[in-house]
Amino acid sequence: MRADIRRLSFALVAQEFRFINKEISAQLGALPPGRAPNEADLGGSGIRKPLTFSHR
Rank of each mutant, 00 (worst) to 15 (best):
I47Q: 14
K22P: 00
E16Q: 15
F53I: 04
A11C: 07
E16A: 15
D4S: 14
D41P: 05
N38F: 00
R6P: 06
L42C: 10
S25W: 05
R35E: 05
D4A: 15
L12D: 12
A3K: 07
E23M: 01
M1S: 14
A30M: 13
F17L: 15
L51E: 05
P37W: 03
R56A: 11
R7Y: 05
G44T: 07
L12F: 11
P33Q: 09
L51K: 00
G44F: 05
L28W: 02
N21C: 03
P33D: 10
E23T: 01
I5L: 15
M1G: 13
N21D: 15
R56G: 12
G44K: 09
R48L: 14
R35N: 00
L28D: 01
F10H: 07
S45N: 08
A11P: 00
A11D: 10
L8T: 11
S45R: 10
R48F: 00
F53R: 00
L42R: 14
P50Q: 08
A30V: 08
K49A: 13
L12V: 12
L8E: 12
R35W: 01
P32C: 07
L42W: 03
A30I: 06
L51S: 03
I24C: 04
F19R: 10
I47G: 05
A40G: 08
N21T: 11
D4F: 04
T52P: 00
G43Y: 04
F19Y: 14
P33S: 13
H55W: 09
E39P: 03
A30E: 15
E39A: 15
A3F: 01
P33I: 05
E39M: 13
E23F: 02
L28T: 05
R2D: 13
E39Y: 09
N38V: 14
V13R: 12
G43W: 02
